[in-house]
């Protein structure tokens, strides 16, 4: 009897802990597939030079407003998905800095400018993304195989200025794996 009791206790020690863990804790799982995110943009700068108030400037192949709908030949820069998966690309603007900075806005104003980003296939200027300091969707599911490039452009509209100092702006393109 005593021996059977000891065997029974041993079996309980053997079986109970693992079943208890299985019931109470499902393990935290971490999984990832080795995909590669890589992106290039052919034109990194836009040197505007001296610009006037209440004017419009295009970052296109010729510096002029593109034909509508936007065609590749009129665009300025080429984005290429060089990674191993399709990517979504968001665009984020930053306020211009330099003594009295220029804020990005939906309409121009005193020290407020409007910046827009457009791409091949956009129907017209109204279809362009008006940049803000928050990320906005720009390109969805850019392929990583054939057709892995897209051309794009920008437009800057100025308001009025309170100083004539040099201004510096920035735009970031962020690529993430298409869900």
């Amino acid at each position: 009897m005593k021996r059977w009791l000891i065997v029974l206790i041993a079996l309980v020690v053997l079986l109970v802990p693992s079943t208890a863990f299985a019931a109470t804790y499902a393990e935290v799982t971490v999984t990832a597939t080795p995909t590669y995110i890589a992106l290039t943009n052919s034109e990194g700068s836009w040197a505007l030079g001296t610009i006037a108030e209440s004017s419009h400037f295009w970052w296109t192949a010729t510096g002029a407003a593109p034909a509508e709908p936007f065609v590749a030949g009129d665009m300025k820069s080429i984005i290429t998905n060089t990674g191993s998966v399709n990517v979504n690309i968001t665009v984020t603007g930053f306020d211009f800095t330099g003594v009295v900075g220029w804020a990005l806005g939906p309409t121009v104003g005193s020290n407020i400018v409007v910046m827009k980003a457009g791409k091949t296939g956009d129907a017209n200027e109204a279809a362009m993304v008006t940049l803000t300091t928050g990320a906005q969707g720009f390109i969805t599911a850019l392929p990583h195989t054939s057709g892995n490039t897209i051309k794009w452009c920008m437009k800057l509209s100025t308001g009025t200025f309170t100083d004539g100092s040099l201004k510096t702006g920035k735009v970031t393109l962020t690529a993430s794996q298409t869900p």
Partner: peptide
């Protein structure tokens, strides 16, 4: 250093 910069993100 350019005006247009790129960034890569992992979800």
């Amino acid at each position: 250093t350019g005006m247009v910069q790129t960034e890569l993100a992992c979800r």
